[in-house]
């Protein structure tokens, strides 16, 4: 479904991604972890073309992201993305946030979009809060609206960029629960996160990145059982100790 082949990316003279390759098949849930600044977020932003890359190839469902002939807006509408800071549109209600791209990109009628939105709000447990503005919602609620907004486009895959990092601890689980339910429903997911509990419960595979390299790309059992690299072991010991 998502093929990443020998991707190199530079910010100026600094190389952020070094020869990254991986492959995510349909229905797979892959967690990407690693120390901050290791290039995890940059890598998943390359997958939907929010970040350009200079070398290599990424294809999603057979469509090459970096190709200038690719209809990027169309491709992006098929890949849902959830951001660390939610990025809900503050001048719109939760309902309007979720409806916008349905009507403007997919061409759904207002009625159709509203009906779909209500179903999704129910699914993420916010059925009666559609009329609220983002500033009137808690962080956890905002992130669930953001997930619903991405799902409204009926994506073939979902990208999560540290979806719980900006949340207060007591709100993390409500978001992880929604993500877990999504994973169970068979969604293809790439998740950048430090939530190792989530990785253990939900992931099929774990990718560990450090300094722009994919150091480890292993099944969940292998990664948590016996990570091969010293760097991954060190990272795990730091993150799991507390």
């Amino acid at each position: 479904m998502i093929e990443i082949e020998h991707v190199n990316k530079w910010f100026g003279s600094f190389q952020v991604l070094k020869d990254n390759s991986s492959s995510i098949s349909k229905g797979e849930v892959v967690v990407i972890c690693g120390p901050s600044g290791s290039g995890k977020s940059t890598l998943i932003k390359c997958v939907n073309g929010l970040e350009p890359f200079q070398e290599g190839r990424i294809t999603v469902d057979g469509v090459s992201v970096g190709d200038s002939a690719t209809n990027l807006p169309k491709l992006r509408s098929q890949i849902g993305m959830v951001f660390q800071n939610f990025e809900l549109f503050p001048h719109m209600t939760a309902m309007q946030n979720i409806c916008l791209a349905q009507t403007k990109v997919l061409g759904r009628s207002q009625d159709e979009a509203t009906e779909r939105t209500q179903k999704l709000l129910d699914r993420v447990g916010l059925g009666d809060l559609g009329y609220k503005y983002p500033s009137e919602l808690s962080g956890g609620q905002q992130q669930r609206v953001a997930i619903a907004r991405a799902l409204a486009m009926d994506p073939i895959a979902m990208l999560f960029d540290e979806p719980t990092s900006a949340l207060d601890p007591e709100m993390i689980n409500e978001v992880l629960d929604v993500m877990q339910e999504l994973a169970r429903s068979g969604m293809t997911m790439m998740v950048v996160t430090h939530e190792m509990g989530f990785a253990r419960r939900v992931a099929d595979r774990v990718i560990f990145m450090d300094e722009g390299e994919i150091v480890e790309d292993a099944t969940k059992e292998d990664f948590f059982g016996k990570p091969r690299s010293d760097r991954a072991q060190l990272f795990l010991s730091k993150i799991l100790e507390h």
Binding site: L50, L72, K74, R76, S77, F83, A101
Partner: peptide
């Protein structure tokens, strides 16, 4: 990030500007 969120939903540049 606001524009990025718009692009990620498949909006074009002009739509991102106009609606967001």
């Amino acid at each position: 990030g606001q524009a990025s969120a718009g692009y990620a939903l498949g909006l074009r540049y002009s739509q991102c500007m106009r609606f967001i």
